[in-house]
Design a protein around this nucleic acid. Structure first.
Lengths: 214, 214
DNA sequence: AAACATTTGTCCGTATGTATA
DNA sequence: ATATACATACGGACAAATGTT
């Protein structure tokens, strides 16, 4: 039996990466509260590693805006303000709109059918009020488009912004709306028609209006 | 005599920050060549610090796309491909365009006159073929607008992308063009007229066309 | 194939700087 | 103002992983 070859590099699972993922998750889901003071010794014990990978993870989290470090003083989780939505969504929407434009020439039937499937999953999750699932699938939908745009800068920036979106979602600062499904459909149609202008407009509207404040 | 109060926090000048700035500069100006293998022990000795701040700096540089780290194997400077321009400028231009839109309601005469002064400096530097100065002033011009937009996400993303622009400039992959001066003037006028649409269009055009490939 | 050399990842102790009494 | 307690920044040694002979 042919063993499926894993084409993703065998990236060594490092203590730092593990710590980073766990800490980011804890900040996103509120296990680590806004403004909470982070003691690297405690965190190291909690994760069963030394302080070094913790420190390194915290520094990366700082560069992404999840913690602030005041050298020699303290390391804290950043706050989640309501107005963060207004800071976050505009750049995310213009980057997603650009990603759609850049993805357009690389788009093909295979990816389009994947998008359609994701959108069906998304609709289903919304229907069943599985909002966490819906958010994940929505993210995968957009990630597909970003991947197709094939631009490493956009990729990493969107990844970072999406993590903040997840955090706002967990803090119930944003909700998903039904007609995202329709707009996803419009996006797919615009891809099929090579309608670049429509792509950018729909994408921008999708992010501005379909995720909205309570 | 009244000593001017420095309102920026007295952020302690840390070894890591010093190392980061130096390493980034070396990568941007080509002292550290593309694909060059980075040995943290060597770098530590060169900068007179231990491996720790070097490693931490390298990790931040990795998150910004200046180096790649293959765990357990090697740390290398990323390459500077000609096509990087095409990856870099589109997201930078849409973010700058968005920044202009968001800055518009916060714009005032004081900032506008600063912009005009920067543009004069920029024109002068170009005239005298002081391209390095021109690039720095151009960056300051746009930074003013980004600061006025007052969006931390845009700020940090643009900062990162601008560093890559500087690198491309040092590698002579991009040049500055005379009519940037005119377009800067158009931007200032559009701010005065509160013409949001024009702002975004001029800004986008400025980045797409005024910095171009050889 | 196995042992070596090299480089990186991790650990933990110490010094330095910050806040508090 | 000085001293004390504390958290962080840094250093240096060890361990693990890689690729090389």
């Amino acid at each position: 039996m042919p063993i499926p070859v894993n084409h993703t590099k065998p990236v060594r699972t490092t203590a730092k990466l593990h710590a980073f993922n766990q800490l980011q998750q804890w900040i996103i889901d509120g296990t680590l509260q806004p403004d909470e003071k982070l003691n690297d010794i405690e965190l190291a014990q909690a994760l069963g590693v030394s302080r070094t990978p913790i420190r390194e993870s915290l520094q990366l989290l700082e560069s992404q805006g999840f913690v602030t470090m005041q050298p020699g003083r303290a390391t804290q989780v950043t706050t989640v303000e309501k107005e963060d939505i207004n800071n976050l969504l505009p750049p995310l929407s213009v980057l997603q709109a650009l990603a759609a434009e850049l993805a357009s020439p690389n788009m093909n039937e295979e990816i389009l059918s994947l998008l359609e499937e994701k959108n069906r999953e998304f609709a289903e999750a919304l229907q069943e009020k599985q909002f966490t699932t819906a958010l994940r699938v929505d993210e995968e939908f957009h990630q597909l488009i970003v991947d197709t745009a094939n631009n490493p800068y956009i990729h990493s920036m969107v990844e970072m912004l999406q993590a903040h979106v997840r955090r706002l979602f967990y803090y119930e600062k944003i909700i998903l709306r039904e007609y995202s499904v329709e707009q996803h459909g419009n996006l797919i149609r615009a891809f099929r028609e090579n309608n670049t202008k429509e792509l950018a407009e729909v994408m921008r509207a999708n992010w501005i209006y379909t995720i909205e404040e309570f």
